[in-house]
Structure formats: C-alpha cells, structure tokens
Amino acid sequence: MNFWEFVLHYLSSERFVTAAGMTLLISLCSLAGGMLAGLVVALLQEVRFLPARILAVFYLWIFRGTPVMFQLIFAFNVLPSFGIVLSGFACAVLALSLNEGAYMAEIMRSGIRAVGAGQRQAARALGMRDMQLMRWVVLPQAMRIIVPPIGNQFIGMLKLSAIVSVIAVEELLLVANQAASSNFRYLEALSAAGIYYLAMTTVFMVLQALLEATLRRRGRPMQGGLLGRFLSATADGARVR
C-alpha cells in the first residue's frame, strides 16, 4: 500500500471513526458543561450576596490556577478514594467542563457587562425584577457579543481534548498513535488524525460564521434553505462590515 492508501485505510477504519466520534463527543459535552458552569459562575459574580461572589472567585482561582491535566488526573485518580468512581469518559468531560467553565465565566461576564446600564434601567422602569431583566434583556444581548469568543473556545476544546489520552480514553490522537506504533507508519496515521481534526474545526468555523451572521440579523425570519441562508448571511455580514 502507498501513502494515500494507508491514510484512506485509517480514515475509514472503525477505530479511527469511533475515536474521532469520541473526540467530538467529549468536546461537545465539555463545551456544553463549560457553558453551563460559566453561566452559573458569571451570574454568581453579579449577585449582591457576598458568599456567592466569594464562591465564584474561589472557583476561578482553582480552575484557572492549576493545569487542566492536573484536574484530569485528579478526577481520575483521586476522586475514587472519596468513593466517586467515574468512567474515563465521565472524568474527561467533568474535568474539561469545569476547566472550561472558568474561562467561559469570564467571557460571559464580559458579555453581560457590555450590556449598558441604560438598558437595565429601562427594563427596571418597566417593572422587571432582576431575574426577568437578566433573562429577557441582558442575556439575549450578551449572547450576541460572546458568540465569537465561544466559537474560539470550542475549536480550542477540540484540540485540547487530545490530552484525555493520559487517562486512557480512546480519543483520536491516542488511537492514531497506537495504530502507528504497531507498524511505524506515523506519517500516515497522524495524517489521518490531522485530517479529522481539520475537518471538525473547519465545520465548526463555518457553523460559527453562520451563527454570527444569524444573530446579527437579530432573529428576523429566515428565508430559504441552508444555502440561501448562508448566501444572505454572508451578504448581510458584508453589508454590516
């Protein structure tokens, strides 16, 4: 077999497909978990109740102050001694989510802060309570601001997920490395893994661009199918810039 035949063989092999799926699944779950954790931590920082803010700062201190690999190994090796036994996958998602949450919190907080005091005051003047103005006025506007950085975080997450190989989760890079070590075809195996990574990041960059363009249209009804949307979205983007 020549180079391309090997690469194609790896790309289509069940192990690689499963591993790429695992990488994608870990990334998606961790991003969702990270957004949830980040939103909670960001909102905790907005609350008047002091212990809530202290809790948020403590969280940020821990998870930004230690390496993500430390958090991963901690979840896998230390939690069982407290009676918490999780699968490798669960540990990976837990550690990556909590780590991501610390960065997401800062992104979300900057988005929340970017919605001006005047908007909050207008909502208050209409009789909204704090929760209502957050839900209906601040967060919808903050979301538009934070889509670009969240997209970047997701692409970063796809690549970061490779480190969960240290707790023996069968993700893409681990499988590629194992495949190569059996026949020393590193170039071919790593090329196949690289193609999967690039394909996934490319898909998400396109999705991110579509989402940004859609949000810029501020929820106006969409016309046509995906292609029509993409064309009108890019046209819209061009007009705005």
Binding site: Q119, A123, A125, L126, G127, M128, Q132, W136, V137, R218
Partner: peptide
C-alpha cells in the same frame, strides 16, 4: 409609572413591536 429616557434605551435585540410586547407579556 411609565418612564421615558433621554437616550430612548430601546432593547436593541428586539423589533419595535417586540420592545412594546416584552413587558406586558413577561411582567
């Protein structure tokens, strides 16, 4: 008590109609 501000402060993510609808619906 209705209040109107110097800088309008319409909710920027909502259409004119939805700006008016929001508080009656949600509050």
């Amino acid at each position: 008590i209705g209040m109107v501000f110097q800088n309008f402060e319409l909710f920027r993510h909502l259409s004119a109609l939805d700006n008016i609808v929001l508080a009656p619906q949600r509050v």
